[in-house]
Nucleic acid binder design. Sequence first.
DNA 1: TGTCCACTGGAACGTACGGCTT
DNA 2: AAGCCGTACGTTCCAGTGGACA
Length: 412
Amino acid sequence: MGNPSILDDVFESFVNGVRLFKDREVLRHDYLPEKLPHREDQIRLLGETVAPVLRDARCSNIFIYGKTGTGKTAVAKYVLSYLEAKAKEYGASVRFCYVNCRMTGSEYRVFANLSQSVGMSIPFTGLSVGEVFDRFRAGLDSSRIIFIIVLDEVDALIKDRGDSFMYELTRINETLNRSKVSIIGISNDLRLKEFLDPRVFSSLSEEELVFRPYDAGELRNILFERSKLSFQEGVLSEAALSICAALAAAEHGDARRALDLLRVAGEVAERQSAKSITEEHVRQAEKHIEHNRVVEALKNLTLQTKLVLLSVYHLSKSSATTGEIYDIYNELCGELGMGLLTQRRLGTLINELDAMGLVNAKVVSMGRYGRTKKIRLEISRSHIKDVFGSDTRFGRLIDYTPKLSKGSAGKC
DNA sequence: TGTCCACTGGAACGTACGGCTT
DNA sequence: AAGCCGTACGTTCCAGTGGACA
């Protein structure tokens, strides 16, 4: 369990050391601040759109677009919480349910979630989606309310499983007698239109709201507001604040990223017993976040996907084709005495690694020599060596020398 | 201009599993 | 216990394809 005296030191310096934070929760993603700077227009527009529910009328469905960290979720929650409170004041029976579709995972669970929020209990599994939907509808109708459904990251679900559940939802009002439903869809992907049935799309986007990315100046204001609540006075340097804003602005104006940077920079500074947070702490925080992201991603891969990535690793002097990787993967499976997947399946796994940013895969045509994907590592080799090298099942394969029997691997 | 390579990627289907309803 | 159900992970089949080469 380690040496207790070491931990004594760690804990003591944490408790008695320099305190930079006043309240670090303020910098977390799910913290909902009282003010949302630079989103006044969107708040007003959304407020105007949902206001009819205060007079017991159904409001228009709304579609909200914008990249991650542009304040979509915060604005939606902010407006609806306020609306719910106002509704109580006016005696209107309004309720809203927020569902993050990506976290929730499937249409079954989305409906299960919605059902629970109208007081129906739904088993974890065992029912058909249709059955869950029927129960939701019945529960909703008997509760006699105006129900606002917020489907966050709805693009994740639609791209994976199609839009049949959205179709059901958009038509639900036709079968309700005593309750009404409005839908607020939130998407990170501006091209969502392409994935949706035109009927569903037109019904969903009776109103549209677009959230533009924050620029560096706006991010700076947001960080400044939050830093007043999260840090002790005078602890955060001007330069550190600006660089956080600039780094996040360079990455499509993501406020979440900016807040993460600031929080981790504070933690780094605190650990070093620094009296203030400097530019250098932010730089270290940036490295720290990226390192953690990659290591976590690597650890959580399935064994087969790890072997695919390891095959890329063994070929990564230059980019490799799917066929070359499959050959190496074949060898590695042989070394471990494991069954191997088909090349078709391997292609899908490579696409998943590409989506995670661990490899870069590009479809190229080599004319007479066929059409394939060129794959190269997107992360440092040392990350793979560190994480996979300590794996008891296949760690030894890090130093494996491929036989490259077909001779083509490694060339460009 | 047509051929042909080495795949890509969609679609349908199979299997295993945990968990519900009846 | 039987019969469903959703989910995860995988296979099989196959039409489609960009561009070098003859």
